[in-house]
Write a protein that binds this DNA or RNA. Structure first.
Lengths: 224, 224
DNA sequence: CCGTTATGGATAGTGACACTCGCCGCTATC
DNA sequence: GATAGCGGCGAGTGTCACTATCCATAACGG
């Protein structure tokens, strides 16, 4: 397969594929002549993965490069791979120093301890959580945390159990790291969408009984 | 309070505050002279909200403008507000037409029906879900969906129940829409972080028994 | 009273990001 | 042997979230 067909199969423009190769997201094709290269199924699969991470997962190109390096590195322990991606989605952040942040970090440490989670409080997900709790506090919704944190944690545990089961049942170690990545990133998108769906349903049931036909107008549908 | 103090209190640069005012995210201060304006607590609160949605929620400035308009518009029914924000996080997207997308939409419709959810299958969250499922399918992890969808949906229902209870118990209708926004957007970040935390824990327990001291090296800790 | 600093308002510029274009010389295909 | 496609490269594009500069005016300190 040459680049044109790869492009046609995946719907990704040729120029973009070349760009991904330059950026190190996609390995170059096997050269058959000085200016002719062949691509195969692995390239196609990798390309689809890149697009999924980019479009649905919302990762940046540079995060994806890091992630894919981890996927390719077979020596990477699975649970190590799980910590990274937060930084790609949340900004560089860099450990805030205000009172809200300090309180949030304590709160996270308490939660981890109470749950008996074997996680370092300095790990990226823990800091991401602290960041989110601090933000909630700063906008005056600190109570939200009191009201929901434990229930959220229960739900997170349920979900994580299911995820791990899937990854574990998925056969070869080669694919495992990719399963973890896919499950983490795309699973997040799935869960978020489900939560909003459940919100809409629960809200419609509780407040407006009036049917909610939201596709009728375009008021909020188009972007920019 | 003048703009300088507002800046000092929130940590947001003066130039950035001016930018938010220009962009319509933040109302202008009350003019006391042709070139002097006063800001109050509502401005401060709004500014913190903007930063939270931006930094933690990952919304774009234009999404935030839309969201805040809804917050300010008291006539907005609550369950109507719940549909929007997906477009800010996921791209404009625009309804894919390939087989994976079609299958995913069917699947979503089936799920909604099976759950008895009162949600239109064309609503933004439903389409976001279909998008995510389609992406999963395209990267060859369609099985993931079979394995976890129902459990995810259970978890989402649990979480949504808790969320709605919080919003309902939160008093005045004025604050309700804001609670919904905050709960939806920041709650998503909280839930995602908790899920990753639970992943790391469950994974450490199941695979590497070796303690996982992740803060020791800086290999993945600092960004870019 | 006056120099310094801060302010509102407007315009222009910045850096990061994810592409996208154009060019060159070569190759595959009809 | 014309035409289309190719690999590789550098440069350009549009968007986004700021950021910098400028001006005339206002507040503030001595």
């Amino acid at each position: 397969m040459r680049i044109g067909e790869l492009s046609r199969r995946t719907g990704v423009p040729v120029a973009t594929i070349k760009y991904y190769v330059r950026e190190g997201l996609l390995p170059a094709g096997r050269l058959t002549s000085p200016n002719q290269a062949a691509y195969d199924d692995t390239h196609e699969h990798r390309l689809r993965l890149i697009r999924a991470l980019l479009d649905v997962g919302g990762l940046s190109v540079s995060s994806i490069r890091d992630v894919l390096e981890a996927v390719d590195d077979r020596t990477q322990p699975v649970h190590e791979v799980l910590g990274w991606a937060a930084k790609g989605i949340l900004g560089p952040a860099g450990v805030a120093a205000d009172p809200a942040a300090a309180a949030a970090r304590d709160r996270v440490a308490g939660l981890i301890e109470r749950r008996g989670w074997q996680v370092a409080p300095e790990s990226p997900p823990a800091e991401a959580l602290a960041e989110a709790l601090a933000a909630l506090d700063r906008v005056g919704h600190g109570v939200f945390v009191d009201a929901v944190l434990e229930d959220y944690a229960d739900a997170a545990e349920d979900v994580a159990r299911v995820d791990l089961e899937y990854v574990g049942r998925h056969g070869s170690v080669e694919d495992m790291v990719e399963s973890v990545v896919v499950g983490t990133v795309l699973g997040e998108a799935v869960l978020a969408a489900l939560r909003r769906l459940a919100h809409v349903h629960a809200s419609a049931r509780r407040y407006g009984a009036a049917a909610v036909p939201p596709a009728a107008d375009g008021s909020g549908a188009h972007s920019s």
